[in-house]
Every structure is written in C-alpha cells, then in structure tokens.
C-alpha cells in the first residue's frame, strides 16, 4: 500500500448546500498534505468524513488501507484527530483529558499515564497539567487538543487548522512537532489558512473551493503554475500609474495587477533580474519616480489569490454570502480577545 488516504468522488450535501462536490484526494504514506481553501470550501467536512465523524452521501473513502464507511472502528484505531474546535473536556484537568484518551485507545493504565505526562511536557502544559481545562487559555486548549490527537502515536493524523489561535512561538513548536511526526513516518492531512504554514510543512497541496479541487501540486509547482517571479513596484505619484503599467506590460507575462490605492503594480515575469533592470531603466527614461521596487518569487498567498480570486485572509475577515462564518471559532477568538 503506497497511499494512506484516498478519497474518490466524495459528495456531501447539507440540505441544498453542496459542501463536497466530487472530491478526490490521495496522500502517500509518510507525506504531509495541505488542504487549502477559502471559508466554507469544505475542508472541515472532508476531515470529518475521513475521521468517521460524518457519513458521505457518495464516494469512496479509504484510510490506512481500510474502507472508512464499512470499517470505521478499525480506522479509529489508526488515526488521530484534532478538529477545528478543540475537543477537550473542560471539567477535567489536562492530565485527566489525555489519560482518558489513552484509556479509550486501550493503551492500558500505566502507559496512558506515562503518555499523558510525556505529551503535557512536549506541549508546554506540564505546569498547567493538573488544573482543569476550563482555566486554560484558547491556545492552551488548542495544544491540549493536539496532544490528544497524538496520544496513540497514530499512523495517520488529521489536523484541522492546527495553529489557529496559537502564538508565534507555539506555532513554530507545532510546526516542528508535525515535521518530526512526518519524518517518523506518520501521514498527515492538515488544513490551514496560513500559506506560510502550508509552504513550510506540506509536501503536496490541494486547493479546494466550493467542495471541488481547483489546483494540486507541490508548493513550488503551484507557484510556477501562476508564473515564475513577480515584479512589484510602488510609484511616487498616482498619475504615473498608467504609463508605468504600459511599460511593465511590455516586459511581463500575463496581466499587470494594479492597486491604485497603494500605487502598486505587480506582474509575473520570466527573466529575473535582467527584466527588473530593463524595467527600471525605462521608468527612468520616462521620468517616473519609484518608491519601492522588488523581484520576488510568488508566495502561496499569490497562488491562493489567483486561484480563488480572493486571499485567504480577506475571506476570513469578510465572509461572502456563501461561506457562512461558523459560530464556534469566532466565539473562541472573541473570548481570547477579551482575555
């Protein structure tokens, strides 16, 4: 068996909302798949189906070589899940939470306890381990939930937005943990809104929108797909925007993106520094003053933007009519802000 996760033609409807519309995924053993998409794209729905929490309406689902629909119990022995909302019991302490999960994975009394202490240490919760989870901050709960996913050292790990709500230090620690797990042979499917995270962790990326796959490949492949490098330049005066746009149009591949507000021009190019030099020369010839200019490789943000027509953050901030904001996550974020 070379793949640990495979779905084909996955369809899930909620009333007349088509959450998944024929999704195909394949994740080889030991690989990390980043599942990206704007709010409401169907990421959580896919994770819930793969982790036996939800029955799909159509399609085949296989995890660790097992048919998820007919052998959910066996699948559960092999997977770990950290869902989008932390699944911890707030009346139990961090230790009791992890100990309980270990017992329910049938690790036995002694091993469950050892593992609970070990994970509390690893996730910086050793001190808070004997306090009830109710007293934890949002980020601490999130870490406890991730620890719970790792209790049985599962072969396949599903992480739905694992670093949302974590501070930068915890986020980097989490990345290291995920990288360690992958190096140790675990297969990971993770969803994220942070392109940097996907870039750093994922071997492969699948971008979905409205329940359908719209792009797939390694981070590099995806970046190349939307054009090699990009010239970005900010002008001193808005009046120069259009002449400069014409100059850049003569040098780039594809369209020049214009941001009037920021007086910024962006375009994909295929000649690197040479093109940049020529562009600056022509601007100088036309007496156009430049505030800032640079050549950069496209980021996954650029990829996301060009594929979905909106950036991940933009969508997160102002959900359009189709992607309803989920009550839970907003809720926790608000609570954190209050704290």
């Amino acid at each position: 068996m070379t793949h640990m996760i495979r779905t084909s033609g996955l369809v899930k409807r909620y009333g007349n909302v088509l959450a998944l519309d024929g999704l195909d995924l394949v994740v080889p053993k030991g690989a990390v798949l980043g599942l990206l998409g704007p709010n409401g794209a169907g990421k959580t729905t896919a994770v819930r189906i793969l982790t036996t929490l939800l029955e799909p309406d159509e399609g085949a689902v296989e995890v660790a070589g097992l048919n998820v629909r007919s052998e959910p119990d066996k699948v559960r022995e092999r997977i770990g899940l950290s869902g989008q909302t932390a699944a911890v019991d707030e009346h139990l302490t961090g230790f009791e939470n992890l100990d309980m999960v270990g017992r329910l994975y049938h690790l036995g009394r002694k091993r469950s306890r050892e593992r609970a202490r070990e994970l509390l240490g690893r996730f910086d919760l050793a001190e808070a381990g004997d306090r009830s989870a109710k007293t934890y901050s949002g980020g601490m709960r999130r870490r406890l939930d991730l620890a719970a996913a790792l209790v049985a050292e599962p072969e396949v790990l599903f992480l739905d937005e694992p670093t949302t709500g974590l501070d930068p230090r915890s986020r980097i620690q989490m990345w290291e943990t995920i990288q360690d797990l992958a190096r140790g042979g675990s297969t990971v499917l993770l969803t994220t809104q942070y392109m940097e995270e996907a870039d750093r962790l994922a071997d492969d990326i699948v971008v979905i929108d409205r329940g359908r796959k719209i792009a797939e490949g390694t981070p590099d492949e995806l970046k190349t797909q939307i054009g090699g490098e990009r010239i970005e330049s900010v002008l001193a005066t808005a009046a120069d925007l259009h002449p400069a746009q014409a100059i850049l149009a003569g040098l780039c591949v594809g369209e020049v993106q214009l941001d009037e507000q920021a007086r910024r021009l962006t375009a994909g190019v295929t000649g690197g520094a040479e093109v940049l030099k020529r562009f600056l020369q022509r601007l100088a010839d036309a007496n156009i003053a430049v505030v800032d200019v640079g050549l950069h490789r496209p980021t996954l943000d650029d990829v996301f933007l060009s594929l979905t027509g909106h950036s991940a953050e933009e969508v997160a901030e102002s959900p359009d009519g189709r992607s309803e904001p989920e009550a839970e996550p907003t809720d926790t974020r608000e609570k954190e802000a209050v704290r």
Binding site: R76, A87, Y105, A148
Partner: peptide, 17 residues
C-alpha cells in the same frame, strides 16, 4: 453539544460506552 463528543467518536471505543 460539547466538542468532547467528537473526540469520543473519533476514538476506537465502544459505540455504547
């Protein structure tokens, strides 16, 4: 109504537990 039920349902425990 609590998130913990998702945890329980993703674990290899008896469905009736």
């Amino acid at each position: 109504t609590k998130g913990i039920i998702d945890r329980f349902r993703s674990l290899p425990m008896a469905r009736s537990a």
